[in-house]
Nucleic acid binder design. Structure first.
Lengths: 189, 189
DNA sequence: GTCTATAGAAGGATAGAC
DNA sequence: GTCTATCCTTCTATAGAC
């Protein structure tokens, strides 16, 4: 069956490259991972990597691309709800799912200094963040924004803990969701 | 006045080196900061940096050293309290203080992949984490540990937000403390 | 689609003059 | 305490054979 644009079968090598690169990025950081080490891990040479992407930056963006799409869809879904509580719930559920099932893509996205700078100059991370902030109604509310930031940037940490990563993913989701709800619950003065 | 061990005045250059290195580490990540760029920023040469530290790893540890001492003191102080609630309170207040007043030392410590690996092989980060976990009584409690991890690793994010970093430090402390309390409050089933 | 070979830049680190 | 000069390694990236 034809599966997309063009006739060329878009290599299985590409999928393996994504998988390998993501794993090393998550473990050693993007700047701590050379194209050489990726190639070594795959048992090929650097030049084989350059066949798929013409620069390291491109590779990083390529690896993160699926996350960008899912993030975009989640925000759109969130914006469709009415009422802050409903939006918060949709967003939290969705983002927790992305993190637990995302094979550490989110950790690389949110935790790596190199990625931060890269995104800032390509996709504009700020645009997404503003949409998120507005979608959950935290744009006029400094404490709310602070809580959201803590959650977004801290959320991936428990998954590296042995006691948590050993749990079934359903429980991981539940655990993170609990934390998110506790942290982001609106407070009346 | 004699001020410490030895006769040599432990240069003012060293203090400036610490300040510069910390600023660049926080902005670009440790691996994204070359000794060359540090030297350039200070208006000296690489060799001048090597006078103070014999390797980059040593420089990183030197820059973080004050944090290690403060962290150690805080944990000891926390362990002295009786009752989980009192310990949690002492710890939260202390750690928030370290982060707000620490000139981004904690951000580099907790957020940089390079530092993670470095500490693992020198000071043993795990030892500290276990002491922290035990001190606030989260060692047998997986959800509690997850919440603690989210807080410790996410806590520095709001301070990079313009709306938060513009506040007086007293309010920043209050804001973070609120989030910590909400997140770490013990839940009965 | 994968390889060898190599260019060219940048990084960490050292020796020794001033 | 800071400099110049240099070494060695590693990195990104390209050219061109198979």
């Amino acid at each position: 069956m034809a599966q997309g644009v063009g006739t060329r079968p878009r290599g299985a090598g590409r999928a393996q490259l994504h998988e390998t690169a993501l794993r090393l990025f998550a473990r050693d950081g993007v700047e701590g991972t050379s194209l050489q080490s990726i190639a070594d891990d795959m048992g090929v040479t650097k030049a084989a990597v350059y066949y798929h992407y013409r620069s390291k930056d491109d590779l990083v963006l390529g690896v993160l691309a699926p996350l960008f799409e899912e993030l975009d869809a989640l925000i759109t879904r969130t914006e469709a709800h009415r009422g802050r509580q409903a939006r918060l719930d949709e967003f939290l559920t969705g983002i927790v799912g992305l993190i637990v099932d995302g094979h550490s893509r989110f950790a690389v996205f949110a935790g790596d200094p190199y990625v931060g700078r890269l995104i800032m100059s390509h996709h504009d991370l700020l645009h997404w963040f503003h949409r998120i902030v507005a979608a959950v109604g935290a744009d006029t509310d400094v404490p709310g924004r602070a809580a959201l930031l803590i959650f977004l940037s801290g959320m991936t940490a428990p998954l590296k803990d042995a006691g948590v990563s050993g749990l079934p993913t359903a429980e991981q989701r539940h655990l993170l969701l609990e934390c998110g709800r506790r942290l982001l619950q609106v407070r009346r003065r």
